[in-house]
Design a protein around this nucleic acid. Structure first.
Ligand code: NAD
Ligand code: NAD
Lengths: 241, 241
DNA sequence: GCCGGTTTGTTCTCCCGTTCACAAACTCCT
DNA sequence: AGGAGTTTGTGAACGGGAGAACAAACCGGC
């Protein structure tokens, strides 16, 4: 998709692997804190909740950082993964929408410890502008561009209501932000080159509900709720009309 | 995995499709509210941010609910998807860990409107037990079993610190909860038959950081930070020792 | 120096998911 | 009634990821 400029560029890592590297990183950090020096793919895979073959294949995309017959140097591997992900340096981040969720995010200590630094909290509501959350004062949304330029922000977090999310995203993109984490339940439309990831509580719960319904189906009373399809079809159309 | 008991059981839906159905459901709800009666796969796919062929194939797993040459009856399709997911009736949910995040979740209005009902907020900290959040009073974690039995809760949300998450999950499973949404950054181990989904802010940000680093790599100064591998290898080992 | 035991890195195969492309089916207009 | 135009549902090709299995590489003991 993007041009390969650097000749020494590391082979591109499959998306599925990229999504697991942070899990490995976390497991390795735990091991480091526990004083472990070395671990096998089997141990690490257990801690990360994945298959050991998958783990080894994932790590092989980064390079050959293990030692056959021994395993991996925990701290060395942790560093290599952190470097590959890009969280050795801190990424400045802005959070927009300091409501219920925005407060929780601002207070979330995991940001700093995992390679991110909240440089600003923004909200459109003037009544919030005198507030200080987690040591950072909430500023007007209009300050976005100045802040992004000042700190070189590339990553933005959206925690506004759904109706405002697209506007906020547009403004972010206009300022030069190229990665967005969206908590609002909306599909964002952004130009090519901008990455969007969404965190959607309702979707996660509904996926659980689907499987839950499936589990219940086997043991429930014979006539659960829904009869054949055609009758329901009519019923629903009546509701509409 | 589970036995097919019902003869009329609908064919099992691919996991990737299940994960998209809630997105379609949301898009359809928007269309209903906008007064739209009918829509084509192209329109709906646009609203959901997916390929129209994918949308059609996804919907085909549910049945043939469209009309060729016309499209889909918005309200009818919305009902069918909601029924398939299982969010026509409300699912009782408990939230454990009423800290920063737990407060936000408790105040989240999207629960009720999307098929879920928070029946209890639980926390181990006694100083929180006199608190009322979003009209629900925070109760001792020890009440979990009684509440689960009383309301027939099948879905639990974990918003405790990571160290407590596995204990909470074990207790939940012990009470009969079979679906867990985990916000704590830990790998949970649960018996077969229990579904766990995780929402992990740090992982999402780190995935964005990886791609962001990739984007920057092409245009950055020649010597970014890291030299060849061997030297760094030593450096890191020194840090450890 | 060599051998048994251990663990990685990689190859191979299979399966799931995505996308293309098109026949079948429906509506509307004449 | 018939034909032109539209849109669904699905068969088939394709690509990527998961897991099994194994050869290569390393350690430690003798
Ligand atoms: N609270 C949760 O646990 C939770 C969970 C999942 C998803 N969400 C989603 O996250 C979003 C925020 O939820 P919340 O509970 O914090 O809502 P909230 O109403 O408490 O907070 C929203 C904040 O965004 C601000 N805002 C509105 N428009 C803005 C704009 N154009 N620019 C900048 N700021 C703006 C508001 O002033 C407010 O402070 C919602 O989309 C919600 O659906 C929340
Ligand atoms: N705050 C965020 O935005 C955010 C974002 C992503 C992930 N998380 C994760 O979500 C979790 C909660 O975050 P937080 O900021 O709300 O933390 P917090 O410390 O504010 O709240 C944790 C709550 O859990 C309670 N608790 C602790 N042990 C318990 C137990 N055994 N049983 C029941 N309750 C118990 C505590 O009393 C406290 O009220 C953490 O694991 C955090 O890493 C938080």
């Amino acid at each position: 998709m993007t041009a390969r400029t650097s000749p020494e560029a590391s082979r591109d890592i499959p998306e599925a692997t990229v999504a697991r590297l942070p899990v490995y990183l976390r497991a390795l950090t735990s091991l480091v804190e526990a004083g472990t020096r070395t671990c096998s793919s089997e141990e690490l895979a257990g801690a990360a909740g994945v298959n050991s073959a998958k783990l080894r294949k994932d790590l092989s995309y980064l390079g050959s950082y293990g030692t056959r017959g021994v395993g991996y140097d925990v701290d060395y591997l942790r560093y290599q993964i952190a470097r590959e992900i890009g969280v050795e340096q801190d990424w400045p981040v802005v959070i927009v929408g300091i409501g219920n969720l925005g407060h929780a995010l601002a207070n979330f200590s995991g940001f700093r410890s995992r390679g991110f630094r909240v440089v600003a909290l923004l909200d459109a509501d003037p009544s919030r502008h005198d507030e200080v959350v987690a040591g950072i004062d909430v500023r007007p949304f209009a300050d976005l561009e100045a802040i992004v330029r000042e700190h070189g922000v590339a990553i933005g977090v959206i925690a506004t209501p759904a109706v405002a999310a697209q506007d906020v995203a547009d403004r972010m993109v206009g300022c030069g932000i190229t990665s967005i984490l969206n908590f609002a339940p909306t599909v964002l439309s952004v130009p090519t080159g901008v990455d969007v990831r969404k965190v959607d509580l309702s979707i996660e719960l509904q996926i659980l509900a689907y499987h839950e319904q499936r589990k219940a189906q086997g043991e429930a009373t014979p006539a659960t709720t829904g009869p054949g399809d055609p009758a329901h079809h009519e019923l629903v159309r009546e509701e509409t009309a």
